[in-house]
């Protein structure tokens, strides 16, 4: 028994060191920086100044939320279809989902910008078909599209891996017992796939809320997200303290949202699959 725990410790040591170095220590830094001023003296000014950033935080969380819901609505049926097809088709579809991720997020977003702009490819196509041009870039819709496009694989993958594990016998049993199609979906498939929804939600919502590149490229100047403001503090404004304070508040808000989310998916999200 003792030997076993010793072995466990040795095996887990690298991961613990990794987690400490790259998760715990940076978090401590974030907290520290948010509580001191540029000279290193304790201050709550940065945390208190948060009121000024209230609107932009709400805006970011809302856009992230909308993008996540859209991702969920698209990914859920797709994941279900994927899980029900033959192995070969599954593999191909998986490949197609993963394919865009082989390219860098920045490049994907930049190409979206070129597609959507007023003189872009989509509008050229419209004018070729004698359709009226549509202004798409620099709108909130473009930002949400960017989020959905970039993060949807993170929704599909956990949903797919949960759904492919669902025992189809349960569905058949429900049908045998006279459940209608909606009842099967509502009473069998949905509850069984909740852990997948929860982890997909987390993995899309968190990066969407804190993104800065997508909003910068696709949102233009019409609005910024909180991620843009945080990035600015670290890049050009050289104000690490404000940047850290904003990040901290954002983290707390995201945790809050996740807590609310967990109320929906129940406590037993042990099946939640991360890639």
């Amino acid at each position: 028994m003792t030997k076993n725990t010793a072995l466990k410790r040795v095996v887990s040591a690298p991961y613990l060191v990794w987690a400490a170095l790259f998760i715990v220590v940076p978090l401590i830094f974030v907290v520290y920086y948010s509580l001191v001023d540029a000279g290193g003296a304790f201050t709550l000014d940065y945390i208190r100044s948060i009121g000024r950033y209230k609107d932009i935080m709400l805006n970011s969380i809302w856009l992230g939320f909308v993008a996540t819901i859209i991702c969920l609505l698209i990914a859920y049926p797709l994941a279900y279809i994927m899980a029900r097809t033959t192995r070969n088709v599954q593999r191909t579809m998986m490949m197609l989902v993963m394919l865009p991720m082989w390219m860098n997020l920045l490049i994907r977003t930049y190409s979206l910008m070129i597609l959507l702009q007023d003189t872009g490819i989509v509008n050229s196509l419209f004018s070729f078909l004698h359709l009226p041009a549509r202004h798409m870039i620099n709108t909130r819709g473009a930002v949400i599209l960017g989020m959905v496009y970039n993060y949807i694989p993170y929704m599909i993958l956990p949903l797919y891996s949960i759904m492919s594990k669902i025992d189809y016998g349960l569905v058949e049993a429900a049908q045998d017992l006279g459940a209608s199609r909606t009842a099967v979906l509502r009473k069998v498939i949905l509850p069984l796939s909740l852990p997948g929804i929860a982890s997909g939600f987390t993995m899309v919502f968190v990066p969407s809320v804190s993104t800065f590149y997508i909003s910068k490229k696709l949102g233009g100047s019409t609005f910024s997200l909180i991620g843009d403001i945080i990035e600015m503090q670290f890049k050009s404004a050289n104000n690490y303290n404000l940047g850290a304070a904003l990040s901290l508040i954002l983290m707390v808000l995201i945790l809050l949202c996740m807590a609310i989310m967990n109320r929906f998916t129940g406590e037993d999200d042990d099946g939640g699959v991360l890639i």
Binding site: D55, N59, F223, S224, I229, M232, S236, A237, N239
Partner: peptide, 14 residues
């Protein structure tokens, strides 16, 4: 300057 720049960047958001 940097405070104002933050405000400018955030203006007209919500």
């Amino acid at each position: 300057y940097s405070e104002l720049w933050n405000q400018i960047k955030m203006a007209g958001g919500t």
